[in-house]
Structures are given as structure tokens and as C-alpha cells.
């Protein structure tokens, strides 16, 4: 009897945790469908009026464009950096391999304030402050370690002799990369790009430190309105971010077995 109870308690705990993780997001999104002028849950009627308002507001649209430009740059930077590093880690032996790998992952575990604040100096000195690029570089610090993780799982799963066979048949290292490796790990590359996109589109503290009103991304516009003017328009903006994030994550899950990210033996 006790064992059965314990088992139910165990599952109940997991379910409660899932509710804890999901409920705030679900509420935030539901609010955005309210027909009311005030933020409240839509009870009988649903409306897209706030989404309409969002897409008709030039300020919001501009922030959306900025967000997309920054996210695009983030994808490019973190894919180049992450792909090269993942190839190095998975195809070569380093003396301090595990240590370097662990160090490479540290930015992702570093809070955004610290990254944003410390990058101010470089941003000023290089004259990049306020531009899309410097925000994208900051976001890449969070994104490229994830790209490395995703690609490494994939690369280590490839049969090495396939690449050797290609070399042996006359392919140069570059040909091996784009004729063999790239097509085979394509889905993971897409997953890496999606992660980079999701991170960049949602991040706002680094964007706050490093951007100006010209390069205001969506979360930056949400922030003050959230503090002073809680309108359903903000909910619509949040809803759009959530939608993009959830779709991106589900697409990633389809493209790649995300389980492998935690099941993969990091100490190998």
C-alpha cells in the first residue's frame, strides 16, 4: 500500500513541477487573446485584436525587425564558431580536451547582466556599441555552447570510417566536410540554428546594456511597457515570442532526438 502511495506521490510531484514550468507561459499567452481593454483571461470571447494592434504599430514592428536582424546575426556567428569548435572537439584529441570543453561551456552558465555589463567596455572602445552586431555577439556567447553540444552529439555519432573512406577515395578535407559531414548532420545544424534563434529573440538584458533606441529589440520594448503600462498589447508581444519559441523547440525535437543531449556521456 505504502509503495503504491509513494509511486503516486512521485508522479504527482513531477506533474506539479510541469505545471509550475508551464502555467506562467500558458497564462501569459491566454491573456493575449482577451477582447477586453484590460489584462484579464478571456472567458467567453476570444479576440485577435491585440495581435492586429501589434502588427499595425510601427514601433513594435521596428522592434520585431531589430530582433530578427540580431537573431540572424546570432545564428551566423554561433554556427560558425560552434561548428568549428565541435569539429575540433569531436575529431581531434587535445591534451586538456575535457577542461577546454568545460571552459567553452561557461558563457552559457554566466548570467546575462555579467555578460552585458562587462561587454560595455569593448563595445565603446570598438565603436560597436548600439549596433546590431555587438548584441548578436553577446547573444552568441549564450548560443554557441549549445551549438557545440548539439553538434558534438551528432558528430560523435557518425561512423568515422565514413569520412576516412571519402578521404581514401580522393576527397580533400573540405570536400569531406561539405559532401559527407554536413549532409549527415544537417538536422543538428538546424537545431543549433533554432536554439540560437530562440535564445536571441528572447534575451533582453544584454540587449538593454548594448543596444540603443535604434536597435531596440522586442523584449526591450516589452520591458518598460510591462512596468508602467500593462496593456494586452504587451501580452500579444509576449504571445508572439512564446509562439516562436515553442514552435522552434518542437521543430528541434522533431529534427533531433533531444534526449541525447542529456543521455550523452560528457566524460568520454
Amino acid at each position: 500500500m505504502g509503495a503504491v502511495l509513494r509511486k503516486y506521490a512521485w508522479h504527482a510531484f513531477a506533474i506539479l513541477m510541469c505545471i509550475y514550468f508551464l502555467a506562467p507561459m500558458v497564462i501569459a499567452v491566454l491573456m493575449s487573446f482577451t477582447p477586453s481593454r484590460f489584462l484579464r483571461l478571456p472567458t467567453d470571447k476570444w479576440s485577435l485584436r491585440w495581435y492586429e494592434a501589434f502588427f499595425n504599430d510601427p514601433k513594435w514592428m521596428e522592434s520585431l525587425t531589430n530582433s530578427l536582424v540580431v537573431a540572424g546575426l546570432t545564428i551566423v556567428i554561433s554556427l560558425i564558431v560552434g561548428m568549428a569548435a565541435a569539429l575540433a572537439f569531436s575529431r581531434f584529441k587535445f591534451k586538456w580536451g575535457t577542461t577546454i570543453y568545460t571552459l567553452a561551456l561557461t558563457p552559457v552558465f554566466t548570467p546575462a547582466v555579467i555578460i552585458g555589463m562587462s561587454m560595455l567596455g569593448v563595445a565603446y572602445q570598438t565603436g560597436m556599441w548600439g549596433g546590431h552586431l555587438i548584441i548578436a555577439i553577446a547573444h552568441s556567447l549564450w548560443a554557441f555552447p549549445l551549438v557545440i553540444m548539439v553538434l558534438r552529439v551528432s558528430l560523435d555519432g557518425l561512423d568515422r570510417s565514413i569520412e576516412e573512406a571519402a578521404r581514401g577515395m580522393g576527397a580533400s578535407p573540405f570536400q569531406v566536410f561539405y559532401l559527407i559531414i554536413l549532409p549527415l548532420i544537417g538536422p543538428s545544424v538546424l537545431v543549433g540554428a533554432l536554439f540560437a534563434f530562440i535564445i536571441s529573440i528572447n534575451e533582453f538584458i544584454m540587449a538593454l546594456f548594448l543596444g540603443t533606441s535604434e536597435t531596440e529589440t522586442m523584449p526591450r520594448v516589452i520591458y518598460p511597457t510591462l512596468r508602467y503600462r500593462l496593456t494586452p498589447l504587451v501580452a500579444a508581444a509576449s504571445g508572439i515570442l512564446m509562439l516562436v519559441t515553442v514552435i522552434g523547440l518542437l521543430a528541434s525535437a522533431r529534427l533531433m532526438n533531444l534526449r541525447r543531449l542529456v543521455e550523452y556521456n560528457r566524460s568520454q
Binding site: 573512406a165 571519402a166 581514401g168 576527397a171
Partner: peptide, 20 residues
């Protein structure tokens, strides 16, 4: 001489066929 320039044919135990 790098292996791609040796004009050798290697058959691997796992065959190493290109799956794509």
C-alpha cells in the same frame, strides 16, 4: 602524401558506405 592523393582503394570492415 596525404591519403586522398594516394590512389588507393580501402574497404572498411563496417563498409562505411555513405548513407545519404
Amino acid at each position: 602524401v596525404p591519403l586522398e592523393k594516394r590512389n588507393i582503394g580501402m574497404v572498411f570492415q563496417s563498409y562505411a558506405l555513405f548513407p545519404h
